[in-house]
Design a protein around this nucleic acid. Sequence first.
DNA 1: TCGCGCCTCCCCTAAAAGGTGGAGGCCGGC
DNA 2: GCCGGCCTCCACCTTTTAGGGGAGGCGCGA
Lengths: 224, 224
Amino acid sequence: MLRVLVVDDQALVRRGFAMVLSNEPDIEVVAEAGDGIEAIDAARTHKPDVILMDIRMPELDGLESTARILTEVGDETRIIILTTFDPDEYIYRALRAGASGFVLKDIPPETLVAAVRTVAAGGAMLDPTITRRLIARFAGELGTEQDYGERLDRLTVREREVLEAIADGKSNVEIADALFIGPATVKTHVSSVLSKLGLRDRAQAVVFAYECGLAKVGARDVGF
Amino acid sequence: MLRVLVVDDQALVRRGFAMVLSNEPDIEVVAEAGDGIEAIDAARTHKPDVILMDIRMPELDGLESTARILTEVGDETRIIILTTFDPDEYIYRALRAGASGFVLKDIPPETLVAAVRTVAAGGAMLDPTITRRLIARFAGELGTEQDYGERLDRLTVREREVLEAIADGKSNVEIADALFIGPATVKTHVSSVLSKLGLRDRAQAVVFAYECGLAKVGARDVGF
DNA sequence: TCGCGCCTCCCCTAAAAGGTGGAGGCCGGC
DNA sequence: GCCGGCCTCCACCTTTTAGGGGAGGCGCGA
């Protein structure tokens, strides 16, 4: 059962969203709040799975409220930002604040419900126009058309496995252990990885792995 | 009426998607293609509004095909990339190639239909996990910055500079050169970075730098 | 069947990296 | 003034890497 908190200063809007969500068998609206302060209190009290958060509110706006809930209360709660108007001015702040969703209030009810389920499952849901903008920004950032994949393709399967292990911060001995082979073999593989990719040492190999997408930020725990 | 081209090397899958879409009153499947070459030809001939493009195909894969259609045929056509498996390895290339959507094949039919209408209207539709990744990348930090930031704060300014240089793939000598200090000094800094952060070697330091956001994917050129 | 690529392991050497301890200079707070 | 943190360097030592060989086994296609 997904536990949802609805935050909006307009009682009618609030009730509308709450009713739409309550109609779903797997969703329960555990509380409502009329401003940012109430929202933080309610988040602390009820620990909802998802919060629907309006931006324009008295006392404390939805973005500030979002940031404070995620840092002070806990980041297990997923927050979807709702807005009536043009998202331009808010979207960047919202994403930085840690929102998992950003949608316009005029979306159809089933989309809202889908958004709640999506963010609860760890995904993110943005308004399509925002997604497009993010993509454009992202694609623009990656200026050079170099295809690192091609360089990766030159590696054998085993070598790629070794490279992944290197990008995991493992030493040769640890790699040998993980792949059930001898340390000498690992050294052989490491050498061919470096020479095939034109790298000098394993540190550069780690950089390469991250840059070409073989290693992904957030996909691991830096515990070492 | 939205004119759609369906591209997939598996005829059954292709027909399935085509039938789902054809059931919609405002959508018409104008052509189907079984590989990337056929896709380009069909795009040139029919000028569809939206193309559903599988990635894995003989001759020319979906990503290459996407890039060529957008550059050679025209960019009025919106392209949605479909994949069965883990999107991680393809997503960066897909977005760079200019795709407007990237979804897994296991989405419910109504979502697929919604995706087609969304991208045709100028929006973008990504799988929720990808959206989340994009947001994380955009925000640059997102939670993890808190934890790792604390560990980063233990470093002095100079040590952080050295760590950045390490994350750039530089050797100790190169770092000394870049910072106008002696190699021995670099070794001192490297040692304190490793011990302060609880890391074993510079490869782990590179991993740490990427994970905590000190180094960012795409912010550099892997030329070495 | 023969070759070829891949995986496995061994030898050797040289270079780089990491650990420890110490030293001097500089600056800011107590 | 004195102390402490920071930056700068040095020397000595051990461990880890990287490079260059070679070699056997195995599967697969010519």
